[in-house]
Design a protein around this nucleic acid. Structure first.
Lengths: 228, 228
DNA sequence: ACCTCGCGAGAGCAGTGCTCTCGAAACGGA
DNA sequence: TCCGTTTCGAGAGCACTGCTCTCGCGAGGT
C-alpha cells in the first residue's frame, strides 16, 4: 500500500515536472511545443516522456486544462474581492483579471483562445473550466437582477435568438431575461476581442495607453448592459 | 525583351500556382502548411520551391497578404452595395461580409486573426491591407457624421484614451469625435470576437442559430454606436 | 555558336512525433 | 529472503519537416 502510493507519488511528481518544463518552454518558444526539447531539459530521452503522456496532444490538453483553471481562479478571485453590490466594480475587476492573466501568460492564452490546432479536438473535460470566465460575468448580471440594482432591457428579441439564449440560460440561471443575457454575451465577446487584439499585436503603434483603452472599452460594454 | 518578359511570365505563373496549391493545402490540412507537400502536389522536389520563395514564412506572408486583400475586397464591396445614407444597412452588410468571408476561408482567417506564429513577425506591408475592414466600418461613421444622420455621443473621455484616439483619427479622418471612434472600435473588436468565437468552435452546442445570433449581436453594437 | 544563367533534381543535415525492444531496477507476494 | 511482475529509461529506427548545397541540363541572350 505504502509502496504503491510511493510509486504513484513519484509518478505524479514526474508528471508535474514535465508539465512545468513544458509550460516554461511554452512561455519562451511559443505554441510549437517540442516534446524532445522538454525531455532534453529533464535529462531524459524523448521516448521516456511517453510513459507519462501518450502523445504530445495529451500533454497540450493537460496544459490547457490547467490554464483554464488558472484563468478561472484569477477571474473568480477578482470578482469575489469586490463588494457584491458594486456591480460595475465587479465587472471591471473581472475583466481586468482576465486581461492581467492573459498578459502574464500569453502563450497559454493563445493556446486557449487562439486558432485551434489543426488535428486537435478539445475533449469534453475542457468545456466546464472554459466556461468559468463567462459564468463569472453572467453571475454579476444575476446578482444585480436579484437585488433590483439591474433592470433588464425592455426589447423584443428575434425568436431564434431568444430561444437559443433561453436554452443557454436554463443551464445555470433559469429565468434570466434573454435580452440581458444577449448583452452580457456581447460583453464577453468584446472582452475576448480586446485581449486578443492586444496580445496578438493588433494594437501595436495604434493604442499606446493600453490600460486606459481597456478600461474605457469595458466601460462601454458595462453601459450597454446597463450596469449602474 | 520579349524573351525576358516570357521568362518572367512563366515565373509569375509558377508563383501563382504554388500559392494556389498552398492555399488548397491550407484549406484542407489547417495552418501547418508543409512546403514539401506542396512541392509533391506540383510534381516537384521540395528544394525547387526555394527558387520562388526564400522560405516557408515568405510563402505564408504572400498568402496572408492576398487573404487580407480578399477580405478587404469583400468588405468594401458589401459596403458599396448599400445606399450610402442607410448607415445601419451598411453596418450590417459590412459585418456580414466579414463573417461570410471568414466562414468560407476559415484557415486563412485563422492565419490573419488567430494566434501569431511563434517565430513569425508580420512585415510592414501587412498593416495597410489589414486595416481595410476597420476602415470600412469607420467610413460609415464618417459618412453619417457628414450628413448629420449620426450625432456623436456627448461624453468626456479619459485624457489618455482621448489622445490615443485623436492620434488614430488624424491619419484617416481628422476631426472625427473621439467618443464616436471609441464606440466604433468597440464594434470592430466585438465583430472580430464574434467571428472568432464561431470559427474556433466556441459556439458549438451553445448557439445553434448562428446567423440570427450574429445579426443581433452586431445590432447591439450598432445601437451602442448610435446608428439610426 | 557560344556562354551564361535560371531552374529542377538529389543528397544531406538537423530537427520533429512516435514505436518498438531491451535491460535494469523497484515492487509485492510467498 | 527470494522470485516473478511491473515499471521505467535508453536506444535505435521510421517517416516526416524546413532548409542548404551541389550538379547537370537546357533555354536565353549576345
Amino acid at each position: 500500500m505504502v509502496a504503491h502510493s510511493l510509486r504513484a507519488r513519484v509518478r505524479a511528481g514526474m508528471i508535474d515536472e514535465i508539465k512545468a518544463v513544458a509550460r516554461r518552454h511554452l512561455a519562451t518558444d511559443g505554441a510549437n511545443l517540442s516534446l524532445r526539447a522538454v525531455a532534453r531539459d529533464m535529462g531524459m530521452v524523448s521516448s521516456a516522456i511517453y510513459r507519462y503522456f501518450p502523445s504530445r496532444d495529451d500533454l497540450l490538453t493537460a496544459l490547457i486544462l490547467e490554464a483554464y483553471d488558472a484563468l478561472g481562479d484569477a477571474v473568480e478571485a477578482a470578482d469575489a474581492a469586490v463588494d457584491r453590490a458594486d456591480l460595475r466594480g465587479r465587472w471591471h475587476a473581472t475583466c481586468r483579471a482576465a486581461r492581467s492573466w492573459a498578459l502574464a501568460h500569453p502563450a497559454e492564452y493563445a493556446l486557449l483562445y487562439g486558432s485551434p490546432v489543426p488535428g486537435y479536438a478539445a475533449p469534453d473535460d475542457t468545456v466546464a473550466p472554459a466556461s468559468r470566465p463567462p459564468l463569472a460575468l453572467v453571475g454579476i448580471l444575476r446578482d444585480g437582477l436579484a437585488d433590483g440594482r439591474l433592470s433588464p432591457p425592455d426589447e423584443e428579441l428575434p425568436e431564434p435568438v431568444r430561444a437559443d439564449l433561453a436554452e443557454l440560460a436554463a443551464g445555470f440561471s433559469p429565468g434570466l431575461p434573454e435580452p440581458l443575457l444577449a448583452r452580457g454575451l456581447a460583453g464577453w465577446t468584446q472582452l475576448f476581442g480586446l485581449i486578443s487584439f492586444e496580445l496578438f499585436g493588433r494594437l501595436n503603434g495604434v493604442i499606446p495607453h493600453r490600460d486606459e483603452h481597456f478600461d474605457h472599452q469595458t466601460a462601454l460594454m458595462a453601459d450597454l448592459i446597463g450596469l449602474p
